[in-house]
Design a protein around this nucleic acid. Structure first.
Length: 909
RNA sequence: GGCGCCGUGGUGAAAUGGCAGACACAGCGGACUUAAAAUCCGCUUCGGGGAAACUCGAGUGCGGGUUCAAGUCCCGCCGGCGCCA
């Protein structure tokens, strides 16, 4: 007995056949400007997927969802005459490969190569129209060479706050030099001129050190000693976002705070541009909002307090300077440097103990609103600049050193955290904002002694605030800042929640830094020394001390007699920050991307663009998961802007249009996971139903952006549709061979058929443009249902169907295209044929159905001529006997006629 | 707690403010078949009336509002998801 399952059509033969043909004919190779076959007359279209991390588990059906969507767009744009860039590659550095290496002793490069191989094989079986000659891998020396090169550009650049752009640090160096040589390049730059003036008075012996400090303080890549999230189990530091509830995101190991020397990237300098320049992008508003919130701009003021009985000053950042009269105590972050200097002897013990406790908590734990507030009094007092009151200075872990100035004025009546804290420690609470404008008008009222019953955080009118009384919150803010600024005690500032990017990891499987250390100072390696390859290691285990695994390669670490290499590696984000640029020119040995290739694929122009660019983003369509809504997209935008400012790329933004595909759940409606056992492997779907069915089902499930559960029964339904397409063209003969269907004839389609043909061409094209793939497939199903029983069946109709179905089911349609002999001029694949045109005139009916409503309810339907006037339609409606019944004896108050649609008769009663 | 997104048949879903449920899945019935599978055709939101053709009513999470007309727009709830706290 044969175990061979009867297939509805021979996809198992068709699919490999066409995959081989496309590959050998290089059907989807996109030549660059200057390459043979490049046609500058065609518009470019760059359609990109977020490249995968090639895990050991292989693909699941979630991966091909976005990939299929972009593939359909890419194939469609090609048929529309575009030069299409549609590449794929591997984000292959990362922790899992290293963890696996630790467990098995197998080198990460070996497992990475195996995993990449498996992923590539799986993707090829789905028939994606990738230009495989453009495949990139972040772990190839030829790739990470340029990741390191970009890092050096960051290292060698500073952000000019006046110009709001990055410039080479050599300019800043020149501006600080004893004898500047490039004054003409920076003399108009007030920022550099100011820096020069500022450092000019130094005595010669200190000059050098101060200048170096200024320079390092400006580099976009810099070294910091800040406390970091150290995970002993993983043996590495983690970014804040990699820590969840005090545990590592990977593996759930405990994470502690520990000060360590780390590389940081000064992304905060770009905070304003990262907000502002979202405006020109075609991204979902929700994603823009997520980015804006993440950057967290807040306008406020810095206000200076003095420490009582001392020269020390405390600067606080507040968004509510209008509440200054309600400040009844101050709070410093426990690690604030001032704490040591102001703490009194009696309180020293308690403060020290509290600082130790705090050191073990993560920022997230510390700021959790629900957690009970804790703190300790330092014993010191500050003077409130507005009313010269002595207020106690506390330390509390709900104030972070990293945000604002690391110090706050506490206004318990109008801030929830201050309120809780004040209640707990019995600190005074003074109401200074009222939600009604009546209170406190007239000004100069004495401070209120009665404490409010509840916290009020909203805006209102100032009370008990001396000269501010009666002013609205907005006006009071302006007024108090104006007054204090005049006395040199405040200034308006803008604060961002965004932190600088912690850019080093204590890992093996990542890009080494092109940096060496000598006499405690860092120094960049010259570009010509790139790539810096990781040393061969047999033991990838963490050292346990915080020292990165690379430190074990003592030979490698020793750079020269005096200098040693940096042993940290870059985080996984690094490689994915610029891969879309490398795709434009993946094998260039001289530049991270060729000038012409970059300009063409990012802007569409072959020559230097004459005028201003219309669109800021380069990639025309970028599809990927929401999980990268903030980090990857923010980091990539940051790098891109630096490269743009320095003149290396042509657009200010990397991605013009962004779409997030939804998550595909298991059949049980749960998230797919190995432990739940609900993971669906695309290989199995292909074996059972074919790649075209997989592709079409992925698209037919529902809207691309939506989360939706997998259904094998649904796949079967789509496979049935494809089999029906197959049988429109061919039928099985007595010998069981597929031969051209006897129903096919070279006849003209009838009127109804013509309408379906042209409606389908129209709808499928429009739906692809708007990413409505599910409804495009529905329309093609309607087409097939129309023609299934047509006998004779016009051969011509199939031509159109195959053309519009091709991007969805490329193998099946190519095969039928060939069998039906549509490839007249010989062996030209359907994929390279133009997209069909539709005739709008054929879509218009001579007679239209009009819905007749009485008071909005459908009561009858009539057929009228297409060109019938409003009056004629209304007359026809009134002539309907059903309408007469429903309106009998009632006063007709109004008649609404919507041409071509309906008539609504409004009656009284 | 704040912000954002989403709630439509048994299921996935469709619907420029204009006939709610296209297209599928599942189910039911029929044709073909000795039989089954496959295939083709039909029915399939709920409730009432009718032998039937059909007909009446209700219906897009809940409650209001705007409009001749609301799944769609506005306000307030409830539930789910995501992000931030």
């Amino acid at each position: 007995m044969s175990t061979e399952r009867r297939r509805p059509y021979p996809y198992d033969q068709i699919e490999p056949k066409w995959q081989e043909r496309w590959e050998s004919a290089r059907t989807f190779h996109a030549p660059n400007p200057g390459d043979p076959g490049f046609d500058p007359a065609r518009p470019k279209y760059y359609v990109l997927d977020m490249f995968p991390y090639p895990s050991g588990a292989g693909l699941h059906v979630g991966h091909p969802e976005g990939y299929t969507a972009t593939d359909i767009i890419g194939r469609y744009k090609k048929m529309r005459g575009c030069n299409v860039l549609h590449p794929m590659g591997w984000d292959a550095f990362g922790l899992p490969a290293e963890q696996y290496a630790i467990k098995t002793g197998q080198h990460p490069s070996v497992t990475t190569a195996e995993n990449v191989g498996r992923f590539r094989t799986q993707l090829k079986k789905i028939g994606f129209a990738y230009d495989w000659q453009r495949e990139v891998n972040t772990t190839d020396p030829g790739y990470y060479c340029w990741t390191q090169w970009i890092f050096l550009r960051l290292y060698h650049s500073y952000f000019d706050p006046f110009l709001q752009k990055s410039r080479p640090i050599s300019l800043l160096e020149d501006a600080l030099a004893d004898e500047p040589k490039r004054t003409d390049e920076w003399k108009d730059d007030d920022y550099l001129a100011g820096l020069r003036a500022h450092s000019g008075d130094l005595p010669p012996e200190r000059r050098r050190a101060v200048r170096e400090a200024i320079i390092d303080h400006h580099r976009l890549a810099y070294v910091s000693e800040a406390p970091v999230n150290w995970c002993p189990a993983l043996g590495t530091v983690l970014a804040n976002e990699e820590v969840i509830d005090g545990k590592s995101e990977v593996g759930g190991h405990p994470v502690e705070r520990r000060p360590m020397r780390q590389w940081m990237l000064r992304i905060t300098t770009y905070a304003q541009r990262l907000i502002d320049e979202l405006d020109g992008l075609d991204w979902p508003e929700s994603i823009k909002l997520l980015q804006r919130n993440w950057i967290g701009r807040s306008e406020g003021a810095e206000v200076q307090f003095t420490v009582a009985g001392s020269e020390e000053k405390i600067t606080v950042f507040t968004t509510r300077p209008d509440t200054l009269y309600g400040a009844t105590y101050m709070v410093l972050a426990p690690e604030h440097p001032l704490v040591e200097r102001i703490v009194t002897e009696e309180q020293a013990g308690a403060v020290e103990e509290y600082k130790e406790k705090t050191a073990r908590k993560s920022d997230l734990e510390r700021t959790e609103l629900s957690k009970e507030k804790t703190g300790v009094w330092t014993g010191a007092f500050a003077i409130n600049p507005v009313n010269v009151e002595r207020i106690p200075i506390w330390i509390a872990d709900y104030v972070l050193l990293g945000y604002g100035t690391g110090a706050i004025m506490a206004v318990p009546a109008h801030d929830e955290r201050d309120w809780e804290f004040a209640r707990k420690y019995a600190l005074p609470i003074r109401e200074v904002v009222s939600d009604t404008p009546t209170l406190g008008l007239g000004g100069g009222s004495s401070p209120c002694q009665a404490e409010p019953l509840e916290v009020f955080v909203g805006e209102g009118y100032a009370i008990h605030s001396g000269p501010l009384d009666g002013l609205s919150t907005a006006d009071a803010k302006v007024e108090i800042v104006r007054q204090l600024t005049g006395r040199g005690l405040a200034r308006k500032t803008i604060n961002y929640k965004l932190r600088d990017w912690l850019f080093s990891r204590q890992r093996y499987w990542g890009e080494p830094f092109p940096i060496v250390w000598e006499d405690g100072k860092h120094r960049a390696l010259p570009d010509t020394h790139l790539p810096v390859n990781p040393p061969p290691l047999d033991d990838f285990k963490p050292t346990g001390t915080g020292e990165p695994p690379l430190a074990k390669a003592t030979q490698w670490v020793r750079y020269s007699d005096k200098a040693t290499r940096e042993t940290n590696t870059m985080p996984q984000w690094a490689g994915s920050c610029w891969y879309y640029l490398r795709y434009c020119d993946p094998v260039n040995h001289n530049r991270f991307v060729g000038v012409d290739a970059e300009r063409y694929w990012m802007t569409g122009t072959v020559e230097q663009p004459a005028g201003a660019k219309v669109r800021p983003g380069g990639v025309d369509l970028y599809v990927g998961g929401t999980e990268h809504a903030v980090l990857h997209l923010l980091y990539a935008r940051f790098w891109h802007k630096v490269l743009f400012d320095l003149g290396y790329v042509s657009t200010p933004e990397p991605f013009q249009r962004l779409v997030n595909q939804g998550i595909i759940l298991g059949e049980d409606g749960q998230k797919m996971s190995k432990s739940r056992g609900n993971v669906v492997n695309p290989d199995d779907v292909i074996t059972e139903y074919g790649a075209d069915a997989l592709r079409c089902y992925e698209m037919f499930m529902g809207p691309l952006e939506q989360t939706k559960p997998w259904s094998m029964a649904g796949v079967e339904g789509v496979a049935r549709f494809l089999a029906r397409v197959w049988r429109l063209a061919v039928e099985e003969n007595q010998a069981g061979e597929w031969v051209l269907s006897s129903a096919l004839q070279d006849i003209e389609p009838d009127k109804a058929q013509l309408k379906v043909i042209h409606a389908t061409i129209k709808k499928v094209g429009e739906d692809i443009e708007s990413l409505g793939f599910n409804t495009a497939i529905s329309q093609m199903m309607i087409f097939v249902n129309t023609f299934t029983n047509a006998n004779p069946r016009p051969r011509k109709a199939l031509r159109s169907l195959l053309q519009v179905l091709n991007p969805f089911a490329p193998h099946l349609t190519e095969e039928l295209w060939e069998r039906l002999g549509f490839d007249e001029n010989g062996a030209k694949p359907l994929a390279t044929e133009p997209w069909p045109a539709y005739d709008a005139a054929l879509l218009v009916e001579d007679e239209i159905e009009i819905v007749l409503q009485v008071n909005g309810k459908v009561r009858d339907k009539i057929i009228v001529k297409k060109e019938a006037s409003k009056e004629e339609v209304e007359a026809a409606a009134r002539a309907s006997s059903k309408i007469a019944e429903w309106t009998a004896g009632k006063e007709i108050k109004k008649v609404v006629v919507v041409p071509g649609k309906l008539v609504n008769i409004v009656v009284a009663g």
